[in-house]
């Protein structure tokens, strides 16, 4: 019945990663609740806000790399992970 969704291994991995990310954030939140704070971003954010902003900007980073450069996507992924870490720590 789910055939029409034409799953592939990369997309399955992608959604698993997103889902486990959300799950991880939830568990982290239960273990130690977040405190809203103001970092280098123009608004004060919670951990979840920073996670979301990180995901969204990562998507844009990938798009730019794919669309307008010939750099490998793995580089984009690396940059995104680094950016995510920066954002979570100081954002």
């Amino acid at each position: 019945m789910m055939e029409w969704m034409v799953w592939t291994l990369p997309t399955a991995l992608f959604f698993t990663a997103i889902a486990s990310g959300l799950l991880g954030m939830t568990i982290w939140e239960v273990v130690s609740p977040t405190i809203e704070r103001k970092g280098f971003l123009p608004i004060s954010t919670t951990r979840g806000d920073r996670f979301f902003i990180g995901l969204l900007t990562s998507a844009y980073i990938h798009l730019v790399v794919v669309g307008f450069t010939d750099i490998s996507l793995w580089v984009a992924l690396g940059v995104s992970i680094a950016w995510m870490a920066v954002l979570m720590r100081w954002g």
């Binding site: 939830t26 939140e29 239960v30 919670t46 979840g48 806000d49 979301f52």
Partner: peptide, 9 residues
């Protein structure tokens, strides 16, 4: 509750 703001968004 956990995730309320993000769910709303």
């Amino acid at each position: 509750f956990i995730g309320d703001k993000h769910l709303f968004f």
